[in-house]
């Protein structure tokens, strides 16, 4: 038997998500007394995965898979799982991971738990802890099928270097015709995505209008952060929908989340609560956000933020 992970690349390079699932998969394989197999598609240097614990690296090189075809990749995953006798399959929670995992579950008739935050609570029965109720609670879920699928929550486990055997093996297969074709990709260039960012700077209605977003963007630029906003801000058209975070928007699980002029409504907080450290800047000392924040400043964004930007710039030059 084995544990199988899908290590996704972006333009040939492994993303942090990929290294995280490999790190997690290795620990899980050790606990099960078995080895970790990672499979990867069109990676430039698959051998990198050995440093994070991959014992076997199954490489697929195929131009037809250069754009993400969920069903084709799920089919490949199912084939490899059968060949490797994999009993646990781990996928990340990126947009692509969330597309892939339920298809694999359907193909293998396997139980699937998404948003898993740590190693299984028990192996026999196989019970995992997962986020539920939009981060307001955790659920313990038993997976009782022979093959188990785990969707690992973002930034929940971390990346660890562990030596794996790193034995490489090429895999090729006849691709199925899937019926969904990619026409074009619109990648926002030069901007860090909320999904990938270590730091997210978010603005709410307290910023009064789109003309003031330079403050948010400048702060994000010094911190190498992604920009986000509350729901009304995107509903009003001040910012694009893709920046709307919260229970009904994008989930945020960054290391640092800075909320400026956001009241901290339950629906907003639910979606960003998985962030490790939360900083709130708000004129209202009674704003609900202070109850869930780690650090708070009661103050006017138009005074506090420019000073913060300036001082952070100084801090960065001193510390680089």
């Amino acid at each position: 038997m084995s544990v199988l992970v899908f290590a996704e690349v972006s333009e040939g390079k492994f993303k942090k998500n990929a290294l995280e699932v490999v790190s997690y998969g290795k620990k899980l394989a050790e606990q099960l007394g078995t080895q970790l197999t990672a499979f990867t598609i069109n990676a430039e240097t698959p051998s990198e995965l050995a440093s994070y614990g991959a014992d076997k690296i199954v490489t697929i090189t195929n131009n037809a898979l250069s754009s993400f075809d969920a069903k084709a990749i799920a089919t490949v995953a199912s084939q490899i799982a059968q060949k490797e006798n994999s009993k646990v399959i781990i996928v990340d929670s990126s947009a692509n991971g969330a597309y892939l995992a339920p298809i694999i579950a359907g193909q293998l008739a396997a139980g699937f738990a998404s948003n898993v935050v740590e190693l299984p609570i028990s192996m026999e029965p196989f019970v995992v802890k997962r986020k539920a109720f939009s981060n307001k609670a955790f659920q313990h879920t038993e997976i009782n099928t022979d093959i188990k699928i785990i969707g690992l929550a973002k930034n929940a486990f971390g990346v660890f270097e562990t030596a794996g055997k790193g034995q490489e093996e090429a895999f090729s297969t006849e691709l199925i015709n899937t019926g969904v074709t990619t026409v074009s990709i619109q990648q926002a260039t030069g901007k860090i995505s909320i999904a990938d960012a270590e730091i997210v700077v978010s603005g709410g209605r307290g910023l009064k209008g789109p003309e003031h977003w330079g403050l948010i963007e400048d702060l994000a630029a010094v911190l190498n952060a992604a920009t986000a906003c509350s729901k009304p801000v995107s509903d009003l058209g001040w910012r694009p929908h893709s920046e709307h975070v919260g229970q009904t928007g994008k989930p945020v699980a960054s290391n640092l989340y800075i909320a400026i002029g956001v009241s901290g409504a339950i629906q907003h907080v639910a979606g960003i609560n998985a962030s490790k450290v939360k900083v709130v800047i708000n004129t209202d000392p009674e704003a609900p956000f202070f109850k869930v924040a780690d650090y708070g400043i009661v103050g006017d964004a138009f005074e506090v933020v420019p000073e913060l930007i300036q001082k952070l710039q100084k801090f960065k030059t001193q510390n680089s």
């Binding site: 008739a109 396997a110 139980g111 699937f112 738990a113 019970v127 802890k129 539920a132 981060n135 307001k136 609670a137 955790f138 659920q139 313990h140 879920t141 038993e142 997976i143 009782n144 099928t145 609560n273 709130v280 202070f290 109850k291 869930v292 924040a293 780690d294 650090y295 708070g296």
Partner: peptide, 17 residues
Amino acid sequence: KTGSKGFEKPQENAACK
């Protein structure tokens, strides 16, 4: 395929500094 084994609530946040 799966079963719920119960729930837990997240830990209370330590007071905001």
